[in-house]
């Protein structure tokens, strides 16, 4: 499962909370420019996997590699410096700062190591416009509707110029129009070489923009494949819809 070019590689990840197995035997590799959809029913372990990859939760076993560097024991800050960005399912915007300041502070934090040619102010202004929040630039982040706050988190994580971006439910709370805009933006970013791992409940979004879709069920990887194959997969349908109960 080792790939010479993969930006993010996950190998044999296992997470246990006491006796509960939250994740087991998870292998995944994401290539530059790829959008990987990660789906699965509630409680399948998607956010847990994100927390393991970003360093907020130590796995019981397994390895995480970023651009070829082993980071299994590294903290979240070091992983960010190696090119990992993420958003959160439960919003983690900096509520008392304005929209622009949210992105600006991210650009400033990474200025010393991201070696961007642009000034943080320029990065912030560009990204705020790019995700479509230009008209809300000077609003406080905690005054935003959920959809706008999610876009803000996307902009903020892009400010560190990551090579891998983990998006946890970025479309929840977005209007259809905003969702379309987000989908287009993610494909555009992938076109520039960014690897995107996308968890979302909006199946239309995931299926339409992902190159591959991985399906988690009860902490295990059920299958990885093209969207069209995954949709047709009976095991996936069963994972989502369940099987009829046989009553004795």
């Amino acid at each position: 499962m080792t790939s010479a070019t993969a930006t993010l590689e996950v190998e044999g990840i296992e997470v246990r909370f006491g006796g509960l197995v939250a994740l087991q035997g998870i292998d995944l590799a994401v290539e530059p420019g790829e959008v990987l959809g990660l789906i699965g029913p509630n409680g399948a372990g998607k956010s847990t996997l994100f927390n393991v990859v970003s360093g907020l939760l130590p796995p019981t076993a397994g390895h995480v590699r970023l651009n070829g560097t082993e980071v299994s024991r590294a903290g979240p800050a070091r992983r960010a410096r190696l090119g990992l960005g993420r958003t959160f399912q439960n919003l983690e915007t900096f509520g008392v700062l304005t929209v622009r300041e949210n992105v600006l502070v991210a650009a400033e934090i990474c200025r010393r190591w991201a070696r961007s040619q642009h000034a943080p102010e320029v990065i912030a202004d560009t990204l705020v416009e790019r995700v479509g929040l230009g008209h809300l630039k000077f609003e406080r982040a905690d005054a935003l509707a959920t959809g706008s706050a999610r876009l803000l988190e996307v902009a903020r994580s892009l400010a560190t110029n990551p090579s891998v971006l983990l998006l946890d439910e970025p479309a929840s709370g977005l209007t259809d129009h905003e969702t379309d805009h987000l989908g287009a933006l993610l494909r555009e970013l992938a076109g520039e070489g960014l690897s995107v791992v996308l968890v979302d409940h909006n199946a239309n979004l995931v299926m339409s923009i992902s190159h591959r879709v991985a399906v988690l069920k009860a902490g295990r990887m059920l299958t990885v494949g093209r969207p069209i194959d995954v949709q047709a997969d009976l095991r996936v349908q069963e994972a989502y819809l369940g099987a009829p109960v046989v009553m004795s």
Binding site: N42, Y240, P244, V245
Partner: peptide
Amino acid sequence: EQFARTVLGL
């Protein structure tokens, strides 16, 4: 239920 088919029979 999230798992629709599990429950619809009942």
